[in-house]
Write a protein that binds this DNA or RNA. Structure first.
Length: 256
DNA sequence: ATGGTGGTCTTACCA
């Protein structure tokens, strides 16, 4: 069995011990991390290598930053894609065995209609084209990360309150469908799931305690991986820890 | 009640 996970850690500097603890307890084989907020020179390579992991990362100062931690060797690393000249480090595509993995930190977008929203939509369009191309080259493709999109109303604690808001707006959901039209499936919805399961809760207004969350962290799988997918779950536990990220990890188990 | 918290070479910006 192979276990893949995605976690927006909101600063790997602050969350390193939590990530190491969770790697032990979850028995995850491959973890995609978003919002490391570390330049490459500061990435805690040794902490992972000491535990037997392979590590790749693409970081920048203060914001963004993505990484992949793997029990198996990593090759064919790509951090930039065609037609997107972007200094922001949000993309990390890697090959691990016969698996192609794309780890994404999708822009937040701030507010519908603003410059950052336009950047988000443009970014998603370019990334979708790249994923389409990758899906042609790799039968076993997984796309994971913080998508900053809640695909459906059932992924939102209070859909009425969130109508047309950022993370939920029609154009963002349209971009989500464009992304999935590249023959990918939302692994979470391959299985019956309890209601009101979310992956992110605002730090403000006791969002987690009141379960006022959104499901915006996802693992998408190509058909060849869907066939082998045994489970897709959200692990709420790290969000209960002291000084948590505002996101909690999501994972899939794949049959060999 | 129209805010709130948390992270970052902090006093502004991002989420």
């Amino acid at each position: 069995m192979l276990k893949l996970a995605s976690w927006n850690v909101n600063s790997l500097k602050v969350r390193l011990e939590q990530v190491l603890t969770w790697l032990d307890s979850s028995e995850v084989d491959i973890l995609g991390i978003q919002e490391t907020k570390l330049v490459d020179e500061q990435f805690p390579v040794d902490a992972f290598v000491e535990k037997g992991y392979h590590v790749v990362y693409a970081g920048q100062k203060t914001y963004n930053g993505v990484a992949v931690i793997s029990r198996f060797p990593i090759s064919d690393v790509q951090t930039d894609i065609p037609d997107l000249d972007d200094p922001q480090r949000r993309i990390l595509a890697v090959t691990i065995g016969d698996l192609r993995l794309i780890n994404l930190y999708v822009p937040n977008g701030a507010e519908v209609g603003c410059d950052k929203y336009e950047y988000k939509l443009n970014w998603l369009a370019k990334v979708s084209a790249y994923i389409e191309q990758q899906s042609r080259e790799h039968a076993k493709l997984a796309v994971m990360g913080d998508f900053n999109i809640a695909p459906e109303d059932r992924d939102v604690h209070d859909p009425a309150e969130w109508v047309d808001c950022i993370l939920v707006s029609p154009l963002e959901r349209q971009a989500w469908h464009t992304l999935l039209s590249t023959r990918l499936k939302d692994s979470f919805r391959l299985f019956p799931q309890e209601d009101n399961q979310f992956s992110w809760w605002d730090y403000r207004a006791a969002g987690f305690r009141r379960n006022r969350g959104l499901r915006i962290d996802h693992i998408l799988l190509s058909d060849a991986l869907v066939q082998n997918c045994l489970s897709s779950q959200i692990d709420r536990e790290p969000r209960t820890w002291e000084r948590p990220s505002d996101h909690t990890p999501v994972w899939v188990a794949l049959k060999n």
